[in-house]
Design a protein around this nucleic acid. Structure first.
Ligand SMILES: [Mn+2]
Ligand SMILES: [Mn+2]
Ligand SMILES: [Zn+2]
Ligand SMILES: [Zn+2]
Lengths: 142, 142
DNA sequence: CATTTAGTTTAGAACTATTATAAATTAATA
DNA sequence: TATTAATTTATAATAGTTCTAAACTAAATG
């Protein structure tokens, strides 16, 4: 299987050995068509559903953070009470549906380039992120 | 003092009685020239420094949340491990200095209008926020 | 006033996401 | 095989936040 060596590479590049637990994490994270926006709990649940076997939370946290540090995952901050991660590591923006708590990727058709006219002296821009919060038409009219 | 009745109004509008603890919180939050970006801990520290007297964290949390719900404060999400609040309740964007952990307001001179071309069907946009993370030129060159 | 009622403050407990720890297990190396 | 290094795991610790319930204060009532 071609995919497997990809996972091994990602793990090795992140400074981690390709163990069976970590390969299962990779399966859930990277063996999919669409972007996966997830919390650690979402991921833990997906793993245990797919493999009928739990992996320790510590291992999941460690692996996700190693991937994030290496740039194989992005962290998205939408709320202060949970961390969200994203398998789409390209520069992109998000809609956040406050009704369903789901993140949706924006492409350039949906949000134009953000025009930053002045940056702070002596500083380099490390990221530019737009978050568009949306909610059902009939509620939250504030 | 003119300011005091303003505080009383804000409290009453938020469904809170104007007690001495809450008026102190108002002093620190609203009796200032520049925008205040703060965590609950920042606020608690400011209060105890200004008045040489601690106010219970529960009171601070409650009051800040009431003001937020009423729209007298905004919550800014930059990190998943702490909540940040903002006394500038107008629509605006932020620079976040990763070296100093400070938020800086952007005005329209600095970031142009964000062009949202397509919204999600049946949903209403409740906010649009841009966060520009910046860091010192000589480090974090990723 | 005096009494009653309702709202508030507070310390500390509870909760939850996250991180740290350290022993048991597994993998790599010699 | 023996030795060493890395990993997994359960569980403890931590930190921000929310909850609770008792003591306190303010407002309303008669
Ligand atoms: Mn993190
Ligand atoms: Mn909150
Ligand atoms: Zn995304
Ligand atoms: Zn601001």
């Amino acid at each position: 299987m071609l995919k497997n060596s990809e996972f091994v590479n990602k793990l090795r590049n992140s400074g981690l050995r390709p163990t069976k637990q970590r390969l299962k994490i990779c399966e859930v994270l990277f063996n999919r068509d669409k972007t996966f926006h997830f919390t650690i709990n979402d991921l833990a649940k997906s793993i245990s559903e797919k493999f009928n076997e739990k992996i320790s939370l510590a291992t999941i946290y460690n692996t996700v953070h190693a991937f994030k540090d290496k740039g194989y995952l992005k962290e998205i901050t939408i709320s202060s009470d949970k961390s969200y991660f994203d398998t789409n590591i390209t520069k992109h923006h998000h809609f956040y549906d406050e009704d369903t708590n789901l993140l949706i990727d924006c492409n350039d058709n949906e949000i134009g380039k953000v025009n930053i006219k002045n940056n702070i002296t002596g500083k380099k821009i490390s990221s530019v992120e737009v978050l568009v919060r949306v909610a059902s038409d009939t509620q939250n009219q504030n």
